[in-house]
Design a binder for these strands. Structure first.
Lengths: 122, 122
DNA sequence: TCCTTAGTTCAAATATTATTGAACTATTGA
DNA sequence: TCAATAGTTCAATAATATTTGAACTAAGGA
């Protein structure tokens, strides 16, 4: 099952802005940016909303060309489409991320998860 | 009559993105950017929608801190809050404007108005 | 003063989005 | 094979946003 993604030139500015103009989705982007490099799956976003709600928001992000979703076994790995967005709208994603990582929602959840990780690892 | 504007630190990223995630408002911003320096009043936006509709969209832009609206006689002069936005979210507005001025809606209307101007001036 | 221009405000109608829960698929591990 | 996990889809609901027209204000000019 390969999920549909727009090509870089199909990414539209009004759509990108509309999709990112939502607390939850902006928080998801901030979180992804903080964890960039580490594969991130849907489950990790459940602090931002219910499973079905996160599925909805991640679909919006994917359809807008902001994230890429790869199916790996039963899970999905979510990554930012940094290169494509930067090619299309230079500087846009960077400026948004800079502000998004400071959102209270993102900070709180990233910290909580770091603590859990520390406890797990002793 | 002085219209209410948020201070720079009251400008919120989710709100700015949500407000700009609309065809009409993005076109208004693109148009303002093209005409920057020249005072721009509401009437000039009537190509983008009805008078009452433009009033609604301009209020949204003002309340989000994206534009400044000054009452001068019976008209309103609209300007971009470039400095405030750039201080708050460096690079964001520039990257949006770069793409917004190329929107078909903006191009079409700016060209039509330039032609009218040329005819008027002989 | 009266008319026109420029724009706002309100309420109603529409349209679009977000949220929820139940039922579903697909993969993995025991 | 059976059960659990990870996530999607659907339909219904709730919440927001947009659009429209009619009525309004406020300033300027004849």
């Amino acid at each position: 099952m390969t999920l549909p993604h727009p090509t870089a030139d199909q990414i539209s500015l009004p759509n990108v802005l509309a999709v990112l103009g939502d607390q939850t989705r902006l928080a998801i982007i901030g979180y992804l940016a903080l964890r960039e490099g580490q594969p991130t799956m849907c489950m990790q976003f459940t602090d931002f909303g219910s499973k079905t709600n996160i599925s909805y928001h991640l679909a919006k992000l994917r359809e807008a060309g902001i994230t890429r979703t790869e199916a790996v076994g039963t899970m999905r790995l979510i990554t930012l489409r940094r290169d494509d967005l930067n090619a299309r709208f230079p500087g846009l994603l960077d400026s948004i991320i800079t502000a998004a990582v400071d959102l209270p929602m993102v900070q709180k959840i990233a910290e909580a998860q770091d603590e859990m990780l520390a406890v797990e690892q002793g």
